[in-house]
């Protein structure tokens, strides 16, 4: 399954995402430079990687959304292609309006780089079908602006539509304030769009997808995508009727 990794000026997890899809999952992968447009037909999965696009100047992700490659991303999203935004990629998706809400500086104003526990909010998605709902997984975070904000109505709707993919939790799956590394509303770590083909998440699954890194919890996210793209799982029907 063909994957495009978008390279914005300042992207720095592009190589890591490329490595996982290409070398770990053995799938065809290409970089798409932000100045290029592409055809939605050419790819099954589009990854917006982490980093500091445009130095995160003004607001994280605010400037990247105007790049030519993003025009193609909008079109691909509309056509139902899978879009995965990780960290800075999530911030770009929010700024671009492909996902609701906004990102603020972490509440303690510090950059956080460490493992977090995540409770899987929904396994009913192209990205998480190989997890169990309610399962607790571990992934690294590395961000200074991951404090997710949305108004109460939006959050209510995300919950109602089963669109919260990951919550920051403790090891046992309790969603507590102590387990919230950045102050995100309702401990939200990742969300889907209404059509469930766009995922934004702050934790880095690509940094925990190999045995040698001591954690493979992130690999299942990429394997879920593959399962879905290869037609082995169906998602969403029951819930949205």
């Amino acid at each position: 399954m063909r994957c495009a990794v978008i390279v914005f000026p300042g992207s720095n997890c592009d190589v890591d995402c490329f490595h996982v899809w290409k070398d770990v999952l053995g799938q065809p992968t290409e970089y798409v430079f932000h100045k290029e447009r592409f055809s939605a037909e050419d790819f099954d999965l589009i990854i917006l990687p982490g980093g500091f696009s445009y130095g995160d100047y003004l607001r994280a992700g605010a400037i990247a959304r105007f790049s030519p490659a993003m025009d193609s991303v909008y079109k691909a999203a509309e056509k139902g292609k899978l879009i995965l935004g990780i960290c800075n990629g999530f911030q770009i998706l929010l700024e671009a309006g492909l996902l609701p809400g906004a990102m603020m500086k972490n509440r303690d104003l510090k950059f956080h780089c460490h493992d977090v526990y995540l409770k899987v909010g929904t396994a009913d998605s192209p990205f998480t079908n190989m997890y169990l709902p309610g399962e607790v997984v571990k992934m690294p975070i590395a961000h200074g602006e991951g404090n997710y904000y949305a108004d109460a109505d939006t959050i209510e709707r995300l919950k109602r539509e089963d669109r919260i993919v990951f919550y920051y939790s403790d090891e046992k799956g309790n969603i507590t304030d102590e387990a919230n590394p950045n102050g995100s509303a309702e401990n939200i770590a990742g969300i889907l769009n209404e059509e469930r083909n766009v995922l934004g998440m702050m934790p880095h699954p690509e940094r925990c997808a190999e045995e040698i890194l001591g954690n493979t919890d992130g690999k299942r996210l990429f394997m879920s995508i593959l399962e879905y793209l290869e037609g082995r799982v169906k998602i969403g029907k029951s819930r949205r009727s």
Binding site: C13, D16, H19, V20, G50, F111, C113, A142, H204, L213
Partner: peptide
């Protein structure tokens, strides 16, 4: 060191906090 991104590039196989850090060479 938790304010430093020490896992980007996915080569850090022994992270900070040990005697020495170890990186794999892909």
């Amino acid at each position: 060191y938790q304010q430093y991104d020490h896992t980007v590039r996915t080569d850090t196989v022994v992270p900070p906090g040990s005697d020495a850090a170890v990186l794999r060479i892909k």
